[in-house]
Write a protein that binds this DNA or RNA. Structure first.
Lengths: 217, 217
DNA sequence: AGAGAGATTATTGTATACAATAAAATATTA
DNA sequence: TAATATTTTATTGTATACAATAATCTCTCT
């Protein structure tokens, strides 16, 4: 799959923004970016247009394109939405999951346990990704799957922080195992509930952080 | 809010595609479109880039941009996803709905009943829009709200067909009233369930259509 | 000195020109 | 004639030039 310059720049910019290389409100200077990538403004502008619908950037006509990093309120809403999507995936997956899918989840949890014992957070994080993306896939709905993946990707930088909370990985794994158990039993409502709570923990953490900041207004 | 040519063209194209002016696989000829809008290729290309993430069109490098109308399978998945989103909105709205929101829903249903009695399908359709968008808003989650609106918009052309099924509007209104009742009682699980079923009816209709087409392979 | 008008600069938006590539048409050969 | 090679054409992708507008600076006047 050949990719043109505009596409390369678009994905590079997306990564850079997600990684936090830009701050909220930063203007994305077409000329500067063009210089950095050794191209003209044209492919840069096309790349920016591509990203517009993602919510990562905002365009103000005749003013430019600006980075929009989510504030605490939006972050809570994003996590809450993620919890709802996961909940939906869980419910449908419990009804539809294949034997291979179930086996993948079991294997992943087994491997996660080892990573946890070895205190290897990075490894655990990777298995966590596999666990969740498997559930997205096993929901049997391509749209739901891709939307979940997209949001999951977007929340990546913030989720990592959560795993650094003391004791969280162990608790997380326990929840994963409970989720698999609910799949094995075909208990869709329970799976739905467990997955929502599994993600909602993070919402609560952020809500806590928010209230401690005391943003009046 | 001033809009540049690229934006105008983007929204126009989006509408045209949603309205069904283009068929699946149609190539969007930059030069032709530029001519139609009396502009150069540049703003047309930017407009196309804007739409890329929406799923309405697909870009193949060095080949062009093509319209992607959902086939039966994708349509079912889109409706199922819609059902899940509505279900989420319903659950959260039941927990958070404001007095004004509840009042809006009651009023809308009252007006819907009149439209139904007058056999005014167009009017009923409009109230239906208000009913659902109110629930999206009352979910209290802006992300969920906007995603729901976006998908609702996308499914508009297909949903209209459903309302032309004999007896459907009356049944639809009855379901709306049951939903409001669940909100009044604060029964979030019930609201969630009712809304999912309310939309899932359409999934079933399409599934039926699909199986009658008998697409083997 | 501060406010406001005008000129200057910078930046976005659009048009056009050119380059690169794929599709189509034509010619060539077995 | 069928298959392949070659040329031609059409179309996309990129660069550059120009136009339109917003931001900044400078100068004037009170």
């Amino acid at each position: 799959m050949e990719r043109n310059k505009a596409e390369v720049i678009a994905t590079a910019l997306e990564e850079a923004i997600l990684q936090g290389d830009y701050h909220d409100g930063d203007r994305l200077d077409e000329i500067k970016i063009a210089g950095e990538y050794g191209v003209s403004r044209t492919p840069v502008r096309e790349a920016l247009q591509k990203l517009l619908l993602s919510g990562l950037i905002e365009q103000i006509p005749r003013r430019g394109v600006f980075v929009r990093q989510p504030g605490p309120v939006e972050l809570i809403e994003l996590f809450e939405f993620m919890a709802e999507l996961e909940s939906c995936c869980g419910r449908l997956a419990a009804l539809r999951i294949s034997d291979e899918g179930l086996e993948t989840l079991r294997e992943t949890n087994k491997a996660s346990r080892l990573a946890l014992a070895a205190n290897d957070t990075d490894q655990y994080y990777e298995y966590n990704e596999i666990f969740h993306s498997t559930i997205y896939r096993e929901s049997g709905n391509r749209i739901l799957e891709s939307e979940s993946l997209r949001l999951h990707q977007r929340l990546k930088p913030y989720r990592r922080i959560q795993l650094q909370v003391r004791g969280r990985p162990a608790q997380s794994l326990a929840e994963h195992e409970a989720i698999v158990a609910s799949f094995e039993a075909g208990e869709s409502d329970k799976a739905s509930l467990l997955l929502r709570e599994h993600v909602a923990v993070q919402v609560e953490k952020f809500r806590h952080l928010l209230s401690s900041l005391d943003l009046t207004g």
